[in-house]
């Protein structure tokens, strides 16, 4: 970052601008493209029940790269990253509690569907 407008060490906590090196930006982009191709290829194969898990692992890797470098969480105060992680945590809770609840009513729903669902011809 020799072209930074500030002459001090970029990691000083009082620097306003922290430009991400261009090389790193491009490296991240090409990694993301590579992971996209990978997920398309693995998506066409079958891995005995692990398909979704694998796709989600690849997507999470991509998301982590975007967050850390493109969204520069890597260089920011950890608090900002924590805000984001908390949102993800609450999505997990949302999902978990909805799952618990849905199974509770499954029998009723299925019975209702069998009795009431009409099919248009």
């Amino acid at each position: 970052m020799a072209d930074s407008s500030h002459n001090h060490d970029a990691h000083d906590d009082h620097g306003l601008a922290h430009p991400v090196p261009l090389k790193l930006l491009f490296a991240v982009f090409f990694t993301l493209v590579g992971l996209t191709i990978l997920t398309v290829i693995t998506g066409q194969m079958t891995f005995a029940g692990f398909d979704l898990a694998l796709a989600m692992v690849i997507a999470t890797c991509k998301a982590t790269l975007v967050c850390l470098i493109f969204m520069h969480l890597k260089y920011d105060k950890p608090f900002l990253g924590m805000i984001f992680l908390f949102s993800v945590l609450f999505v997990g809770l949302f999902l978990a509690f909805t799952f618990l609840d849905s199974n509770e009513y499954n029998a009723d729903i299925n019975a209702w569907v069998r009795d009431n669902m009409t099919i248009s011809q």
Partner: peptide
Amino acid sequence: LLFSSLTVAWGVRNAMLG
């Protein structure tokens, strides 16, 4: 979309460097 993310991240760098 990934490419647009790259250009936006690059743009932020451009803004920081004037």
